[in-house]
């Protein structure tokens, strides 16, 4: 059942021309950023070579690229999550799901998995660009892995939050703006915390991504992302269940 719903969501995502347009523009931005970083790295490479522990290509190109991707995904994920539940409600197709023999959990998980499968190629495209450097230089595989995993977890937590916000309303545009506002708010919490150890920083997904970004695999950060996803998915399930009760 979950697979059926996920497959249907993926199909309708890719059936829309706007999806392809966004993916193309995104790829262009990533490539531009990647080439700009690479160019900068090549210019200072001769000087870096004289340093004792010089940053390698991975650190100089991949780390900023993934950092930028994290920021762009914050703006992008709400665009895709907004349709998921809000549009079903607006088009009154939610009735089909609500009267089918599937639970709210299956509906939410199906949609969440579809979002993950959709975001995976975006992250993979970043990874592939960096891996292309492997033909000319030695890459730090561990750092790359940590970055890719971190970005995936970050995207998943954005998707979970977006899905929940989408379940609150029947207007996709409202869902997009509200999800964006929530993500931006979380980012601001992190940015405004002056103290590096401030408890406020722990709230924001981006601050947990930072440790992945510098190559730190921390079980605490991993736990944070899993809890964040689980909490918002659970809230979305509850919201769908309440729909049946309150109409």
């Amino acid at each position: 059942m979950i697979a059926t719903i996920a497959f249907k969501e993926l199909r309708s995502l890719f059936a829309a021309p706007s999806t392809w347009l966004i993916l193309a523009v995104l790829q262009f931005i990533f490539a531009w950023f990647f080439l700009a970083r690479l160019d900068a790295f090549l210019q200072v490479q001769s000087q870096l070579a004289q340093l004792a522990s010089a940053p390698g290509a991975t650190q100089a190109v991949a780390v900023p690229l993934f950092g930028a991707a994290a920021l762009i995904l914050m703006l992008l994920v709400p665009v895709f999550t907004m349709r998921m539940i809000a549009e079903e409600r607006r088009n009154q197709t939610m009735t089909l799901l609500a009267t089918a023999p599937v639970s709210s959990t299956q509906i939410v998980l199906g949609k969440f998995i579809a979002l993950l499968l959709f975001l995976l190629p975006i992250i993979a495209s970043c990874l592939l660009m960096v891996l292309a450097l492997g033909t000319g230089t030695q890459l730090d595989k561990g750092l790359l892995f940590a970055n890719a995993l971190g970005l995936l977890l970050l995207a998943a937590s954005y998707a979970a939050l977006g899905l929940y916000v989408s379940s609150l309303t029947a207007q996709p545009a409202v869902a997009a703006i509200a999800a964006l506002a929530a993500l931006f708010g979380l980012w601001l919490v992190e940015a405004s915390a002056t103290d590096n150890d401030s408890a406020w920083r722990l709230l924001a997904p981006t601050s947990h991504f930072e440790s992945f970004n510098v190559g730190l695999l921390n079980s605490g950060d991993l736990g944070y992302f899993l809890l964040f996803c689980a909490a918002f998915l659970l809230l979305a399930v509850r919201r769908l269940n309440n729909n049946r009760i309150y109409g």
Partner: peptide, 25 residues
């Protein structure tokens, strides 16, 4: 169930839509 407003996915073909409905059930 056919509600007052048919729950149709406008971006799907009739075949795909009906197949989805069948699998969903």
């Amino acid at each position: 169930f056919l509600p007052e407003t048919p729950p149709l996915y406008r971006d799907m073909s009739v075949d795909d839509y009906l197949l989805f409905a069948a699998r969903l059930r």
